[in-house]
Amino acid sequence: MFGKGLFTGLGITLKRMLGPNITEFYPEEMPNLPPRTRSSMGLDPEKCISCNMCANACPNKVITITSEKGESNKKVLKSYRMDVGRCLFCGLCTEACPTGALHVTQQFENAIYEADELKWDMIERAGKSRGRGEQA
């Protein structure tokens, strides 16, 4: 019968209107992201052996590492910078890291105001997030 489809549609929307809503109230309720989510990269400077594997794996030359020779001829990480504006968040760098120093984190609130803030100093960030961790 003509009009049957129309009424079915009305029925469906009415059912949904009366049913529960499924919104996640984001800033109040933080989403529970699975541990594999690549929201940003985090570095554990102590574990890093400055092998440069991550920088080589990156398709977009996001990572620049400088290191210097420390005692017993071991490389010591001096600076670790990520130009996140160019990052694809593909995770190839974390896969390449042999020690697990570079890892994905679920911290997704990366919005910033200035373009310069897109240049992450990973060692500094690691210090900050550790500070936060202790407070919490």
Partner: peptide, 10 residues
């Protein structure tokens, strides 16, 4: 509100 309710939003 109605738009929200029909699509299960508040």
């Amino acid at each position: 509100k109605v738009a929200g309710w029909t699509s299960q939003r508040p």
